[in-house]
Computed example of a mutant assay.
Amino acid sequence: MSGIHCETYGHGRPLLMLHGWAMHSGIWRQFARQLAEQRQVICLDLPGHGRSAPLARFEMPAIVEALLAAIPVPSFDLLGWSLGATVAINLAAECPDRVRSLTLLAGNPRFVREPGWPGVKPEVLDSFAELLSSDSKQTLQRFLGLQVQGLPHAKTVLQQLKQSISECDAPDFGALQGGLRILKQHDARDSLAALTLPIRVIQGDKDTLVPVATATALRNLQPALQMKVLPGAGHVPFLTHPQALADIVLGDD
C-alpha cells in the first residue's frame, strides 16, 4: 500500500494531475471531470494532503517515490499545478520512460525570486513559515487570498476555494512545513532543462505567485517548450477559466 489517495475519472489516454501546497484533489475535481470527457484523468493527493498518508519527512525524493508507487498506469501525460508543478518536474526526471508529456500550470522550477529569475519574494514564504508555527489556519487563509489577489471576482473565487478544500482536514504540519521549504529552497531548473519530452507551460497574466515574466526565463531553459498565457487568469485558472484551460490541455487530442 502506498498510502496515496487516488481518484480516477473517464477513459482514454491517461492524464495524471498533481495539486498544489496545502490543497488536495477536490480543489479541481469539477475541472478533472470536464477533462474526463475525453481523457482518463488520475488525481493524486500529495503525501500528508487530503486523504493521503503523511511521510516521515516531506522531502522531494520521498514524495516522488510515494507517488510513483501509487500511479495505476504504466505511462501517462503529467500536469502539475503550483507546488505540484515542481513535484511533476522531478517525477518526470525520475521516470522519463513513463511520462509522455509535461504540463506546468501556474508552476515554476524555481519558485522564489533571485537575480535574473522572476518569482515570488522570499520574504513572502518566510512570513508564511513564521506564521505557520503559531497559527496554521491563518497561514492557509492568507495563502488562499494570494491566489485570487487582483482578480475581478476575487471574493467569489475565494469562496470556491474554501468550499473545495473544506471537505478534508488541513494537511499535517510536517507536510505544510516541508512544502514551504521546497517552495523556498528547491531548484528544479537543471532537471527541467535536461528533459527531452514535450513540455507545455500555462500561466495567467494576473498570477501574483508565478509572474508571467517567467515565460522568457523558462524559454532560456527549454527553447522548445510551448507557452500559453491565459488573459485575465490568476493562480487558479481551473476555477476562473475552466473552458479556456481545458481547450489548451486537450488541444493535442
Rank of each mutant, 00 (worst) to 15 (best):
P54S: 09
L55T: 11
A56I: 10
R57W: 08
R57G: 02
E59H: 13
M60I: 05
P61R: 03
E65A: 15
L67I: 09
A70D: 08
P72K: 04
P72G: 02
P72A: 01
P74V: 00
S75D: 14
F76H: 03
L79T: 09
L79Y: 07
L79W: 05
G80F: 02
W81T: 01
W81S: 03
W81L: 03
S82D: 07
L83E: 06
G84R: 00
A85E: 05
T86I: 14
V87I: 15
A88N: 05
A88W: 05
A88D: 06
L91D: 02
A93E: 06
A93P: 00
P96V: 04
D97M: 08
V99E: 09
V99P: 08
R100A: 14
S101N: 05
S101K: 01
T103G: 08
L104A: 09
L105R: 01
L105T: 03
F111G: 01
V112S: 06
R113Q: 15
R113V: 02
E114A: 15
E114D: 05
G116Y: 08
G116T: 02
G119C: 05
K121H: 15
K121Y: 10
P122F: 11
P122D: 10
P122H: 09
E123F: 13
E123C: 11
S127C: 09
F128S: 06
A129S: 15
E130P: 01
E130C: 13
L131E: 14
S133P: 00
D135P: 06
S136E: 14
Q138H: 11
L140A: 10
L140R: 13
L140K: 06
Q141P: 00
R142C: 11
R142Q: 15
G145P: 07
V148K: 00
Q149A: 15
G150W: 04
G150M: 10
A154C: 06
L158A: 11
L161Y: 06
Q163R: 13
Q163C: 10
Q163W: 08
S164N: 13
S164K: 12
S164T: 08
E167T: 14
E167Q: 11
